Simulated assay, not measured.
Amino acid sequence: MEQYVMTPREKNLAAIGEIAYKYGYTVEDMLGHRRFKKMVAVRRECIGMLRAKGFSTTEIGRIMNRDHSSIVTSLQTLAAENG
């Protein structure tokens, strides 16, 4: 019996899903364009997690359906929040 191996994209979306689920959101919420304050904070946490995994801002942008400049801004905000 062959074992299913997740693609890198599927692994990233699963990790995003875990963070989203913790706060009552879905992967679709994180990849969507709604900008509720709480949702943006959770999305920023997902972006921080991807950055910690070593992804570039362009790669994170592709994963999160955003422009890399939006990712840069999110990472700057995350750094400011964490002092």
Score class of each variant (00 low, 15 high):
20 A>Q: 01
52 A>L: 05
19 I>D: 00
66 R>E: 07
22 K>E: 14
50 L>T: 01
22 K>R: 13
23 Y>T: 03
53 K>G: 11
50 L>G: 01
22 K>Y: 09
46 C>P: 01
63 I>S: 01
49 M>T: 05
21 Y>K: 14
62 R>S: 14
34 R>Q: 15
33 H>K: 14
68 H>W: 12
14 A>S: 11
17 G>N: 02
15 A>D: 03
64 M>G: 02
59 E>V: 10
34 R>H: 15
60 I>C: 04
16 I>D: 01
53 K>S: 11
35 R>H: 10
35 R>G: 08
70 S>R: 03
21 Y>W: 06
64 M>Q: 05
35 R>Y: 08
21 Y>L: 12
61 G>A: 04
25 Y>H: 11
68 H>T: 03
24 G>Q: 10
53 K>C: 07
15 A>R: 08
60 I>N: 00
16 I>S: 01
31 L>F: 12
37 K>Y: 09
12 N>H: 13
49 M>W: 04
26 T>D: 11
52 A>R: 14
72 V>F: 02
31 L>Y: 11
66 R>G: 05
57 T>N: 11
67 D>G: 10
48 G>N: 07
18 E>K: 10
52 A>N: 14
27 V>G: 05
49 M>H: 13
34 R>E: 15
65 N>A: 14
49 M>L: 08
17 G>L: 06
68 H>F: 13
41 A>P: 01
47 I>E: 00
60 I>P: 00
64 M>C: 10
36 F>A: 14
42 V>N: 02
32 G>D: 12
46 C>K: 01
56 S>P: 06
56 S>A: 08
55 F>Y: 14
52 A>I: 02
34 R>D: 12
48 G>S: 07
48 G>M: 03
15 A>Q: 07
17 G>S: 10
56 S>N: 07
66 R>I: 05
56 S>V: 08
22 K>D: 10
35 R>T: 11
26 T>Q: 09
24 G>D: 14
19 I>Y: 00
16 I>G: 00
57 T>S: 07
21 Y>H: 14
21 Y>E: 14
59 E>F: 06
28 E>S: 14
53 K>I: 01
17 G>Q: 08
29 D>L: 06
18 E>S: 09
43 R>Q: 10
58 T>K: 11
52 A>T: 07
28 E>Y: 12
13 L>A: 06
15 A>M: 10
35 R>C: 07
59 E>T: 13
39 M>R: 15
69 S>E: 06
27 V>L: 04
35 R>D: 04
30 M>I: 15
32 G>L: 12
62 R>E: 15
59 E>C: 06
30 M>A: 02
30 M>L: 15
67 D>Y: 08
43 R>E: 04
18 E>N: 12
27 V>S: 09
46 C>E: 00
40 V>F: 06
37 K>F: 07
32 G>C: 12
54 G>H: 08
20 A>H: 00
61 G>L: 02
22 K>L: 07
58 T>N: 07
18 E>D: 11
34 R>K: 15
67 D>P: 04
39 M>I: 12
58 T>D: 08
67 D>N: 12
20 A>G: 06
19 I>F: 00
71 I>T: 06
23 Y>H: 15
17 G>D: 01
13 L>G: 02
56 S>F: 05
69 S>K: 10
27 V>Y: 04
65 N>V: 13
57 T>K: 07
54 G>P: 04
67 D>Q: 10
64 M>N: 06
64 M>A: 08
15 A>N: 06
65 N>P: 04
20 A>S: 07
37 K>R: 15
22 K>A: 10
21 Y>N: 13
52 A>Q: 13
36 F>S: 13
18 E>H: 05
